[in-house]
Design a protein around this nucleic acid. Sequence first.
DNA 1: TGAAATGTTGGGGCG
DNA 2: ACGCCCCAACATTTC
Length: 482
Amino acid sequence: MAASPTIVWFRLDLRLADQPALSAAVARGGPLVPVYVLDDAGEGDWPPGGAARWWLHHSLAALAGALRERGSRLVLRRGAAEAQLVRLARETGAGAVAWSRRVEPSAREQQERVTRALAAAGVTALPQDGALLCSPDEVRTGQGGPFQVFTPFWKACLASGAVAAPRAAPRRLPPAAAWPDSLALAELGLLPRPDWAGGLAAAWTPGEAAAAARLRDFLAGSLPGYPRERDRPDRDGTSRLSPHLHFGEISPRQAWRAVHARAQRARSAPAARGAEALLRQLGWREFAHHLLWHFPHTAAAPLRREFADFPWRADAAGLRAWRRGRTGCPLVDAGMRQLWRTGWMHNRARMVVASYLVKDLLLPWQAGARWFWDTLVDADLANNTLGWQWTAGCGADAAPFFRVFNPALQGAKFDPDGAYVRRWVPELADLPAAWIQRPHAAPAGVLAEGGVRPGRDYPRPLVDHAAARQRALRALRELKRS
DNA sequence: TGAAATGTTGGGGCG
DNA sequence: ACGCCCCAACATTTC
């Protein structure tokens, strides 16, 4: 008897190569029914934000195209995943649903609802691992608990066994005998209206093929210089793989193997160091997912409970200025405007703008996390949570709260010519490098020459950094006393 | 995956 | 030649 159809429920794994859910479905031997279900309610407090929805639209388009090339299709549905999947199983006679596990709290609840609904309908659930190198329950401390410090976590991860070879994409996918109804992609309503996504489209190409090309380009060019260049927002030295990894257009193990292979071929010390540095970044992604799995409350609340009472300020105008890149602090504004325009921000700039919001403005990290969630194409709940709690000093292995970034010094170190600021804050472009990171302190003649009238062409600083730093340290002492 | 304050050292100018 | 001071460079401590 021929095997019944299998539904491949695509989630954050929008690829065909090294796709465990797809492999599991193919292994069952029957026809495949690939589906994507847009289930905003199922994402709880964190449905994808505007930039991520734009990405998702184009990634789904790419996936649908790749499926068509293999004789299949992508069915699109909207609504509660459990209801849609059960309905689709009835429509197609599917006997099983395969998917890739996720670690986000809402996604876990959604998985449980789906599993129950499928069981009730007599359909087999085939959940798979594959979004991570180290499944969260696989690595444990000596005491058997979850890790809370990166380095031992990463060591345990590396020691937990060789990374399996990624699987190639199936050449042909057995089509359904009769295709069920599908929404048109546009009906998902993922594209912004009015269309503000021009900057995103100029900066990015979503989809599995583009992800592979991005990795190839990075390996061909930037890998040896990566350890130093990755810290320079004025250079193009990062991998830019983050949105591709978030949407699963490339698997961490594909990236891992490619980076390793490239470093071995090169047999050069810089390439080897570059490979190690990039893999370490993959490690932070693993660590973030490990933490969100074991501490699901941390997307909203600090991991270190004592920080729940931190005396944050309320300052709507300050928050607004930060969001729009009008704080009067050039490196912060450059980062925030790069984010707004392209849906992405250089990691060094992320640390600086985050430190500025949390410590200079003394605003809650959750407000920053929410803005990043809405504006980043790579918005990922685990990574975003780890990053913000790291900055705010309230997370696992976090920077101590008293570690306050000085934006002008960070600018001098990592954007020494001011090229990054010039690019994203053009009203400062004619200032000399010596003053571009702190125009508020520049002599009047320098400002006049550069065509900058403080408060008119460029905002005066919201806060004086030295004073703001002292205020932040006072707030920390206040917290410690209570 | 800081920065500022504070401490130490050592070379050179100078009386 | 010597002691003294200055200060840059570096190290350590503190937030």
